[in-house]
Write a protein that binds this DNA or RNA. Structure first.
Length: 558
RNA sequence: GGACUCGUAGCAUAGUCUGGAUAAUGCGACAGCCUUCUAAGCUGUAGACCGAGGGUUCGAAUCCCUCCGAGUCCGCCA
């Protein structure tokens, strides 16, 4: 409809059609109209221009009137037709997925390090990455979700060194947790006694060289971490199509790094290999340690190649914290200088840290809030809240519902903020189930379902409802908001502004709650009830699509 | 020292890319709304010189410059 209007406006003003389309906006108030065309740039007095234009233009189908308001030309939808169109679209194909994009995109996210704890910073990454995957798939991209586990490197060497040297026996339970605490102890010891660092380096070299006893210990402990991570992913509903391990790309990465010397891109410096990127304002980029063991960068050189060559992708997105911005600029520039054609198709999707009030979290220092700790607290709160309201529910039901509510709260608190913003972690906010929260959104869905259930009307019959009876402004406003979902999804997959979807859902939820408060759905006028039920069903549908993309499950009752 | 990011009511945020009509929302405070669809909700009141100062523009929270404050990063961690 917007397109049809821009066509007419373009005809009347002589401006280009897509320019007009871009100029169209939504007026601040519902009573002011549905689409606004500002007339400042038409020359002369804008108000006069608007008046002139209003006389010239022919209203396309689906619009009921046009009004001049100051310097704006405001157009009004024909509300009955609008609601009719919206609900039939929703009924037919659930809004449908976006048109196929013919572009294969890999989204790499999560990247936890084995032998370390999975903390709330990792949670933000996992939830953000997973939402992006869902949104881009819905928008029509062919998406490969990938994980890249840090299963080798300095931190692993440090852990294994400590375990080998000081731990007489290995634990039989809570192994991942135990492992993470050994890492913290190892780090403390090295900081206190730096003279021990060469021992760690020796372990790193042994691992790199394939030393049997250490490789065995490595494999065993690595699995402990992986078990923990997989449990977390299962709980979060986070899925990957492919999992890369740093250990798989280390050797090939070293070869690439060495070849950089032959190409004249890298030079030997105090035994290490570095690429000088000063002329690009990117400092120098270290690609191999002086003892010959690989760095993060070494491995990423090979990983980039594998992603594009083995998976035939067109675009590669790295979901990684903003503290690595310089690193990725260096990596992509080096790839470019190497002649790697797809370097320009690599994108670092950076996001702000999750910090504690006391400052930055560091698993090296052990001042972290682990996923497990937070999760347990949130679940406890969720149980309390459910039991407060539904003491009569069987245990299994309240467990299930509490679980979904808890997860919704957790995920939403990581998703609704603009992604560059640093999150100062506040346990009370994560535990809040009111206001701008995941449970608030879930609640709207359950209200919708509850109304439909109470009405005892056959849901299938609702598609024949007489929607012309929906005359309340709140009903039209709801419909107008619902209609925006596909645009939000499309925009998000282009701009990566993931928080616009949760913000949109909050908006929609609030409009629904206001409607719910003001107008009765279940009532004696059966025809009106059916029309309203059809709308309510649509709200539930949109809510469920949106929440699904965020990885939040809906519940029938709560 | 250099680079990047952020600065919006007491607090937490949206809006900034693509300038436009009364700066929106939540928490907190105060005052209300449950014998009718779940109050995890809704309504109302108070609360913002949009960090400061310049500039561009008919028009700036939004673009440009300077400054201030906070955070992050700056060769053998990832």
């Amino acid at each position: 409809m917007k397109e049809a209007l821009s066509k007419e406006l373009a005809k009347a003003t002589g401006l280009a059609e897509d320019l007009v389309l871009g100029m169209l906006s939504v007026p601040p108030g519902l009573e002011m109209g549905d689409l606004a065309f500002p007339c400042f740039r038409l020359g002369g007095n804008p108000n006069q221009a608007a008046i002139g234009l209003s006389k010239k233009i022919t209203l396309p189908k689906g619009f009921s009137k046009v009004e001049v308001q100051g310097c704006y030309l405001n157009f009004f939808y024909d509300r009955a037709i609008f609601i009719q169109n919206l609900l039939s679209q929703l009924e037919k194909k659930g809004f449908g997925h976006g048109a196929h994009k013919k572009e294969k995109v890999m989204v790499e996210y999560s990247q936890p390090n084995t032998h370390k704890a999975f903390h709330i910073g990792h949670l933000r990454n996992a939830v953000l990455g997973s939402a992006l995957v869902n949104i881009m798939r819905y928008a029509g991209y062919d998406v490969v979700a990938s994980n890249y586990m840090g299963d080798i490197g300095n931190h692993v060497a440090k852990s294994l060194w400590y375990i080998d040297k000081f731990c007489k026996s290995l634990p039989n339970e809570k192994r991942g947790e135990w492992l993470a605490s050994q890492y913290v102890k190892a780090t403390k010891m090295i900081e206190e006694k730096p003279e021990l660092k060469p021992e760690v380096d020796k372990v790193h070299k042994k691992l790199d060289a394939g030393d049997k006893p250490f490789i065995e210990l490595w494999k065993k402990t690595r699995d402990w971490s992986l078990d923990d991570f997989n449990n977390i992913y299962n709980e979060l509903g986070v899925k990957f199509d492919v999992v890369f391990f740093e250990s798989q790309v280390a050797d090939a990465g070293k070869e690439i790094a060495k070849r950089l010397v032959d190409k004249g891109l890298a030079r030997l410096d105090e035994g290490s290999l570095l690429v000088d990127l000063k002329e690009f304002g990117l400092d120098v980029f270290l690609v191999l340690k002086s003892d010959g063991t690989p760095l993060y960068s070494t491995k990423d050189l090979e990983l980039a190649r594998r992603k594009f060559e083995e998976f035939k992708i067109n675009r590669s997105i790295y979901v990684v914290g903003s503290e690595q911005e310089l690193y990725f600029k260096q990596l992509f520039k080096t790839l470019e200088l190497m002649g790697f054609k797809d370097a320009k198709n690599c994108f670092h999707l950076s996001y702000g840290l999750v910090q504690l009030e006391s400052g930055k979290m560091s698993s090296r220092l052990g001042n972290i809030v682990t996923y497990q700790e937070l999760r347990d607290k949130v679940m406890e709160k969720a149980h309390e809240e459910v039991e407060k309201r539904h003491a009569d529910w069987p245990k299994q039901k309240s467990d299930e519902v509490a679980h979904e509510i808890g997860l919704a709260a957790l995920k939403f608190s990581m998703l609704d903020k603009e992604r560059k913003r640093v999150i100062i972690f506040d346990i009370n906010e994560a535990l809040s189930f009111e206001g701008e929260s995941g449970p608030y959104l879930q609640y709207v869905y359950t209200r919708c379902r509850s109304i439909i259930k109470k009405s005892c009307v056959n849901e299938k019959s609702l598609k024949d409802a007489n929607l012309n009876l929906l005359k309340e402004p709140e009903e039209f406003e709801l419909a107008r908001r619902m209609e925006a979902l596909p645009d939000i999804i499309e925009e998000t997959s282009a701009t990566y502004k993931i928080n616009s979807l949760p913000r949109y859902l909050l908006d929609l939820a609030q409009l629904f709650n206001q409607y719910y408060q003001k107008h009765k759905v279940v009532q004696e006028d059966v025809e009106l009830m059916q029309a309203r039920l059809a709308l309510v069903k649509g709200v539930a549908e949109v809510m469920s699509i949106g929440l699904g993309l965020l990885g939040i499950k809906t519940v029938e009752e709560m």
